[in-house]
Amino acid sequence: MNEIIKLVLPSFLDTLYMVFLSTLFSILLGAPLGITLVLTEKDGLINMPKLNTILGTIINITRSIPFVILIILLFPLSRVIVGTSIGKEAAVVPLSIAAAPFVARVVESALKEIDKGIVEAAISLGASTNQIVFKVLLKEALPGLVLGITLTMVNIIGYSAMAGVIGGGGIGDLAVRYGYQRFRTDILIATVVVLVLLVEITQRSGNYIAKKIDRR
């Protein structure tokens, strides 16, 4: 038992590291993209349907590349950004990039949920596009955004385990090295339990926060 904890705990911390950083970076990359999608759609606040179509297509293409292949494709980029293509730091790059288009869609759909009348009222009060984005859209959509980010984290947890398989570190890495290569079924089960708990806790906290801040 002691041995299992000794093995699982550092891997678990590595996974947390990957998940948190990747979520953060995917939001930084994906949220502006999602906001742009909403603004540039036909009859949006910045009516640019062509740009919208181009962005939408890029997002769809990125989302349709299987994650394992995306990691391999992004090895060179990891090397440029963090200096290596192995380990938890290296995994953050493909994880962030893989999750960013997902975040963009999540943000897009959360913002689209908002009643057009509220945006119209803001316009009629003299709000600029910037003010509408930050003071109306993001604020009104906050509960939906929290749920969307939660969904993103859960996805990244799954992806991070996959990244572990090809040298990304974390729980996935442990599962392969001990559980698969050394036939340690107990370690394998422990990794699964840890992942299930992590997903469960993430989802429950997300739901709780979203409900707490929703005044609609």
Partner: peptide, 10 residues
């Protein structure tokens, strides 16, 4: 407006 259009989270 007819449907008030208030900020619901404010």
């Amino acid at each position: 407006f007819q449907h008030f259009n208030l900020l619901k989270n404010s």
